[in-house]
Write a protein that binds this DNA or RNA. Sequence first.
DNA 1: CACCCTCTGTTGCATTTGACACATACTGAT
DNA 2: ATCAGTATGTGTCAAATGCAACAGAGGGTG
Lengths: 223, 223
Amino acid sequence: MQNNNNFIPNIKRSELFAGISEKDIQQMLVCFNAKKKKYCEGQVIFSGGEKIDQMGIVLSGRVYMESNDITGNKSIIRELAVGDILGDLYALSRNGRLIFDAVAHEDAELLFIDVDKVMTPCAKACTRHLTTMKNLLTELAGKACNLDRKLSHMSMRTTREKLMSYLREEANHQGTENVTLKFNRQELADYLCVDRSAMSKELQKMKKDGLIDFSGNKFKITG
Amino acid sequence: MQNNNNFIPNIKRSELFAGISEKDIQQMLVCFNAKKKKYCEGQVIFSGGEKIDQMGIVLSGRVYMESNDITGNKSIIRELAVGDILGDLYALSRNGRLIFDAVAHEDAELLFIDVDKVMTPCAKACTRHLTTMKNLLTELAGKACNLDRKLSHMSMRTTREKLMSYLREEANHQGTENVTLKFNRQELADYLCVDRSAMSKELQKMKKDGLIDFSGNKFKITG
DNA sequence: CACCCTCTGTTGCATTTGACACATACTGAT
DNA sequence: ATCAGTATGTGTCAAATGCAACAGAGGGTG
């Protein structure tokens, strides 16, 4: 591991180390064989089909899990921010092969950790080991719930329903009717797996029908 | 827990108890406060919005996680068979609230287990406790991967692409080009979130175009 | 300012899809 | 055999969607 541990405050934001002191984290990072790596915007971090045995924690920047199919359609599967964990579900599953690409959406720094080091209690009695395993379980369960939530939007039959489903959840999550999206229009369309222009049309119709109001990426549910 | 433990062979098929002897399983079931329960076909096991702190292991029958929206559209999110675990990702996540309904698709028996009992090492030193935690992590990761796989089908823009994506994965999973589906047409449509009649038409077109061949629920990818 | 680039909305058109109705098996029960 | 019920495929039509092309609004840079 590198000498400069100035990323420790950021790593504390990760669910993996919840309830663990900075001092203990530093010890564990050695134990977990943690390695820091930088990525430029657009750079591929993991690519679909690849077999991995490390998971990455986002220290800075944003990362997208995305699918780029043969016909040129991009789909944003999920979006990862600082503290989020990348690739854990593949590295921890039996076959370990990625389905999607992980791409740096902005310049980003990641800290990579060997998953088997997390899964296997180490010899030097890391007392916090059990805590990280429990944290990982919670994190993984949360991620799976988010996938379920995304599926609930995707299972809607029309673009309008997909948008409402997504916006309602965002409103719920952000705790206000006035929702600020992190996506631009193209990204929102890629996230909901619909055509951008068709979505743009539908958004206008929904505004006219009094369902929503919006300006830029500030949305409000009104219906 | 009931006296008749004749379901132990079935429970051994669950990933949760992988690598644990029958004798140890019996002890752990007491420790986990396991309770068996029967459900009739069509009966709701968990319903959307409900908060849960138990997970269920399918001892017999089949269970669907499904979404039933206001407009009457059903979507089959996933299908659980004997040995599969139900509700774990909700029970283990922070908020613990279900998004979908879990419904018995056939008469079914489930064994319910307290998740916090699994998460907390017990006083009477269950040596196998760590194993179940690791197993649960693997199972959860595998489930999340399946959700990702499902998302990869759903993100396809056309019914034809959704079908091909799904069939290719099934072929891959079943290890043969001759795929036997567990779904009937309506269920397949509900799984891929498309209209049944439209899908039926598309299947015929795909057959005519030489992409696939099928009869009943036996499919073959030919293109 | 002129230029380039990106983002968003708009339009027209061809295709796909969903909804509904109905015909045709096939199944199981009586 | 008869009947009811279910599963599957077909036909028609309206609506939704994708696609391509373009216009206008910024935003940054030389």
